[in-house]
């Protein structure tokens, strides 16, 4: 009994903090989404309750479909490539060779840089006129691509930058997963005459499944949250072609001189539902893996 009391005494600061720093802002967001706020009532309070009007407005807006579709595309394509490239790199680095530890450490750099740094560097590299990417493409005879200013390419451009940022995380986690597979397993299969491809496909990949699942789920949760990269590179444009739920929510609330806090909060809450759904799957999968 006393032990519980002392235990919770040590937990009191964190509980108070969670209430103040998570519960309060989240309740504020819900409140914003069910009232008709103006700049004036935002400061003074007393905005009229409007129920689900903001949600109806948001769902009826054609941007909603674009943003949702872009969010799904951005997330799925990012995950597939981050995981695929990350796994290939992890397999490559899992055999130790001269400099392997140093090079593996250098691979972490993109993940550690501030997102605004990576995003602005990519924005300049993908610049139509003076960007290095178009210069390289031009050298092999490919026409210049308007990466950031054409609606056909803007989503692809921000996805490429996001894949680059996500590779290190996938590499590190999958690499440590590979390290946990006992080497005897590989030796046994090599003795049985399995080719390295067979050995990967029939042994390594299935044994790596728990780590792969967690990596992909964490990647999903992170990617749904991505805002900085897209906002800095394209601001969701041109004409909404790279808008996701996250950038749209920001644009509604902070991107214009006349903020629309209600719809902004409504979009944010839709995004939160998606993130929590992914999060619950993650927690469940992790528990099952711990149990087994």
């Amino acid at each position: 009994m006393r032990k519980n009391l002392v235990g919770w005494a040590f937990l009191t600061p964190i509980v108070a903090y969670l209430l103040l720093s998570y519960a309060y802002p989240l309740v504020t967001t819900i409140d914003l989404s069910i009232r008709d706020y103006t700049v004036r009532s935002f400061v003074r309070g007393g905005a009229p309750l409007t129920g689900l009007t903001n949600y109806v407005t948001v769902f009826a807006d054609p941007t909603f479909r674009t943003a949702l579709l872009n969010t799904v595309l951005f997330t799925v394509v990012s995950l597939v490539f981050q995981y695929g490239i990350g796994l290939a790199m992890a397999l490559f680095f899992s055999r130790s060779f001269r400099l392997s530890a140093t090079l593996r450490a250098l691979f972490l750099v993109p993940w550690l840089l501030p997102l605004i740094v990576s995003a602005s560097t990519w924005a300049w590299m993908l610049n139509s006129e003076a960007g290095v990417v178009n210069a390289v493409l031009g050298a092999v005879g490919i026409d210049k691509v308007n990466w950031l200013t054409s609606p056909d390419w803007s989503l692809a451009s921000v996805t490429i930058a996001n894949i680059w940022i996500g590779i290190p995380f996938n590499l590190v986690v999958l690499y440590s997963g590979l390290q946990n597979i006992p080497t005897e397993v590989h030796e046994a299969s090599a003795l049985d005459g399995a080719s390295s491809w067979q050995s990967f496909w029939n042994i390594t990949f299935p044994l790596l499944r728990p780590v792969s699942t967690i990596t992909l789920l964490l990647g999903l949760v992170y990617t749904l949250k991505v805002f900085d990269i897209i906002w800095i590179m394209t601001r969701g444009g041109p004409s909404g072609s790279s808008t996701t739920l996250a950038t749209w929510s920001y644009e509604l609330g902070f991107g214009n001189t006349l903020p629309r806090f209600g719809p902004s909060a409504a979009v944010g809450n839709v995004l939160i539902l998606l993130a929590l759904l992914a999060g619950l799957v993650y927690v469940r999968v992790q528990r099952n893996q711990e149990a087994s």
Partner: peptide, 13 residues
Amino acid sequence: MIPGIIMALGFYG
């Protein structure tokens, strides 16, 4: 797992 952009809106309010 809560997106930063939503926290930002809540904190701003």
